[in-house]
Structures are given as C-alpha cells and as structure tokens.
Design a protein around this nucleic acid. Structure first.
Length: 154
DNA sequence: GCCAACGTTGGC
DNA sequence: GCCAACGTTGGC
C-alpha cells in the first residue's frame, strides 16, 4: 500500500466539501499535469491512503486523511465544455486525463501547518517540502506518514 | 529537438 | 500582489 499527499485549494474544494459528499466519497478531478496524470494511472491504487492538504490559503497544511476507493478512470470534466477543466484535445476514445475516488477517513482536530512540517527534521526529504515542488499529488513514505500521524495526535 | 515566451502554482 | 520555479506551447 502506498501513501500520498493530495493538494486542494479549500476555496475550490475543501475537506468539508468531502465530508458533505454522499458516503464521504467523491472523485478527485481536474488534474491537468502529465506527471501527476501518470501517477494516477500507474501508481495510485485502491486502498492507498493519503493526506488531504489545503493549499493556496491563509494557513496551508495537512488537514486529514483519505482513502482511495476507486482507481484511475477517465476524468469526465475534460469532456464538459462548461467545466473549467474542459480540454478539447481529450478524446472520448483515448482520454487524456484521469481521476480517482477518495473517501474521507478522518479530519484532524487542527491543521498541521506547512510551517510546522518544515521544522521537523525527520521530514527533510519529503517531496512536498522540496524546493520548487508544484505537483498537486506527491508520495509520502511510510516513515513520514507515521511521523505526521503522530503530529496530528499531539 | 531546441528554446523563448508564456502560463501556472503556491508560499509568502 | 510578488515572484521563484516549473510546465507547456509552438515556431524554427
């Protein structure tokens, strides 16, 4: 099983939106970056777990845990001209973009701020924290995962 | 295939 | 709003 970190701008889609979705489950759409697309198609598997990360907001950080409930399938928003994620180059017969489903497992009582993650020496190698990282999905090692979970429980 | 120009991300 | 860093586009 793999661990991930999924970024979302709370003004677009927050952890509370997921909490309010039917069965606490929703699709993770709108990925329009090839590196991340390939991660979805090749690596993100059912029952993988991930952190829900709030980005581009006043206090960015990790706010909860989700679980992958459905693996890679075509992102239908790419075919919808009214969607901001519409991509006229995505072909129904050969979709360019993919999404997956996640279920909310836990919302932390308090966000774990990016600022705090940066202070943790044992998280030095974390992909999220690397200079220039802009990927909206990054991998998390089991050790990093456990360490962050322990921060959430403090 | 190179690379300049432009677009996007996302912390601050 | 700024801007560093990276991604994408498209002419050549």
């Amino acid at each position: 099983m793999n661990y991930w970190l999924f970024k979302s701008e709370p003004s677009t889609y927050s952890i509370d939106d997921l909490a309010n979705a039917a069965n606490n489950t929703d699709h993770w759409d709108g990925i329009r970056n090839y590196t991340v697309r390939n991660m979805i198609r090749n690596q993100i598997k059912k029952n993988d777990q991930g952190f829900f990360y709030h980005s581009s907001c006043s206090k960015p950080g990790i706010i909860g845990i989700v679980k992958v409930t459905k693996e890679s399938y075509p992102d239908h928003t790419a075919f919808d001209p009214s969607s901001k994620y519409f991509d006229e180059k995505s072909d129904l017969d050969s979709p360019r973009w993919f999404m997956f489903d996640v279920k909310l497992i836990k919302k932390f009582p308090a966000i774990i701020p990016l600022e705090l993650l940066r202070k943790e020496n044992s998280l030095n190698g974390m992909q999220l924290l690397k200079k220039g990282n802009r990927l909206s999905i990054t991998s998390v090692s089991a050790i990093q995962w456990e360490h962050i979970i322990s921060l959430a429980e403090q």
